[in-house]
């Protein structure tokens, strides 16, 4: 039998990404750009909520959007058409989440694309081949960049994107017990938006129970009930976001 040698690593798989994420946050801080990572299950209303929110804020601050999906550019086009703000589509190449390095590539593309038309697509490259480069300097940069993560409640929660704050949307038809089923997602979110409250009478959705379950996972989470379709409650989310952007720039 061949002799072998054991090299001890004792290294968390997420360590490198956590480091990249912290570095990206530092860079964003320096440039005064606020990055929001928006997560949810597919179909909870992320894009509709964003359109409503952006239209309430776009005259107050400069906003840009990064849409991450496995394929297609429908969301980036939808955002651009409905709000007029800059939006780019990121393709994860089959991956179920974005990590800090992919987010950084997206930000670079966004800043370069900011003078061109929207709907541009970026194919992400796999782990090892990624280039480490600094964000490009641009004069007209957004105050707020919103990253619409891949619709998924498992993997995006594990990978820090470098965002300043994490938000997630839980829609009424999904059920009020979702925080019990996907605890990690709820524990990493600063704000939980409960969407589609207009259909609450048709579902056995207990808002108070839902809040209780969220706070069991994360006592500090802000919970904002909205209906993105009618606009009800969206003002409260827009105000939360505006306050956070201002805090980040002032600090």
């Amino acid at each position: 039998m061949d002799e072998v040698k054991v090299i001890e690593l004792k290294k968390s798989v997420f360590e490198a990404n956590d480091r990249d994420a912290d570095a990206l946050r530092g860079e964003l801080k320096e440039r005064g750009v606020f990055l929001l990572n928006l997560m949810s299950a597919p179909g909870s209303g992320k894009t509709t909520t964003l359109i409503q929110t952006i239209n309430r804020l776009k005259d107050k601050i400069r906003i840009a959007v990064m849409e991450a999906d496995i394929d297609s550019d429908v969301d980036a086009v939808k955002i651009k058409d409905a709000t007029g703000v800059e939006s780019i589509q990121l393709h994860t190449g089959g991956m179920c989440h974005l990590d800090a390095e992919m987010t950084k590539q997206g930000l670079q593309a966004l800043l370069v694309e900011s003078r061109k038309t929207a709907g541009a697509q970026r194919q992400m490259t796999a782990g090892a081949q990624r280039q480490k480069t600094a964000l490009l300097k641009e004069e007209s940069q957004p105050d707020l960049v919103i990253l619409e993560n891949v619709g998924n409640l498992v993997c995006p929660a594990e990978f820090d994107t470098g965002a300043v704050k994490n938000a997630m949307i839980l829609s009424v038809p999904e059920g009020h017990d979702k925080p019990l089923k996907y605890p990690l997602m709820f524990s990493v979110c600063d704000v939980v938006v409960i969407n589609k409250i207009d259909v609450m009478p048709y579902f056995d959705f207990d808002l108070e129970k839902c809040k209780e379950y969220i706070h069991m996972r994360n006592p500090k989470a802000t919970v904002i009930p909205i209906c993105a379709k009618t606009g009800e409650g969206v003002e409260a989310f827009a105000e939360w976001l505006l306050k956070e952007v201002k805090n980040w720039k002032a600090k």
Partner: peptide, 13 residues
């Protein structure tokens, strides 16, 4: 909650 690389085993030179 660990997802950790404990060690790698390589042929002894």
């Amino acid at each position: 909650n660990e997802v950790e690389i404990k060690e790698i085993v390589v042929p002894q030179s």
